[in-house]
Computed example of a mutant assay.
Amino acid sequence: MPVPVPVGVLRLPRGPDGCSRGFSPASPRFQALLGGDTAAQGVRAALRQRYLRGLAAARGRPTRFCLRAGVRVDAIFGAADVEAVAFQVDALRTPLGVQAAALLRCADVLAYSFLLD
C-alpha cells in the first residue's frame, strides 16, 4: 500500500486586528462576500448568467472580431474561458492568412459580433 504524501496547509495571513485570518471586515471584498448588497449581487449574477448562456449559444457561429490598431479578423467562435482572459476560435482569417485554431486575448479584443450564416 503506498504511503500518503503529506500536503501542506495554506494559512491566510493574520488580519489587521492581529487575531483574525483573511480579509479585513472593512474591505469591500469582505463586504461582498457577506452579501451586503444582495440586490446588486442578484443583478450581477443574472447578467453574468445571460452573458455565459449567450457565449454557449454562439459556439460554431461565424464571428468578426475588432482588435486594437483597427485590425478586423473573422473566425468561427469556439469558447471563452471563465476568467474572460481569452477566446478560442477556429479558422481565424487574418491579413496574413488563415490559422486553423487560435486564442485571442480579451485584452486585445475591442468588440466582436456574430455574423449571419
Rank of each mutant, 00 (worst) to 15 (best):
P2Y: 14
P2E: 13
P4D: 09
P4W: 10
P4L: 07
V5I: 09
V5M: 03
P6I: 02
V9L: 11
V9N: 09
R11T: 03
L12D: 01
P13G: 01
P13T: 01
P16R: 11
D17S: 01
G22Q: 01
S24F: 00
A26S: 10
A26D: 12
P28T: 13
R29L: 13
Q31E: 10
Q31S: 08
Q31L: 14
A32V: 05
L33N: 09
L34P: 04
G35F: 02
T38Y: 02
A39L: 11
V43S: 04
V43H: 05
A46D: 13
A46Y: 05
L47N: 11
L47S: 09
Q49L: 13
Q49K: 11
Q49S: 03
R50F: 07
A56D: 14
R59T: 12
G60H: 06
R61I: 10
R61P: 01
P62K: 15
T63R: 03
F65S: 00
C66W: 12
R68N: 10
A69L: 11
A69S: 10
G70E: 05
V71I: 15
R72Y: 11
R72T: 12
V73Q: 04
D74M: 07
A75N: 00
A75T: 04
F77H: 03
G78I: 02
A80K: 10
V82G: 06
E83Q: 14
A84S: 09
V85N: 14
A86P: 05
F87H: 11
V89G: 14
D90W: 10
T94W: 07
V98I: 07
V98W: 04
Q99H: 13
A101L: 02
A102P: 04
L103Q: 08
L103E: 04
L103S: 07
L104F: 03
R105H: 09
C106T: 11
C106M: 09
A107L: 08
A107H: 12
D108N: 06
V109F: 12
V109N: 08
L110P: 00
L110M: 04
A111L: 13
L115S: 10
L116P: 01
D117M: 04
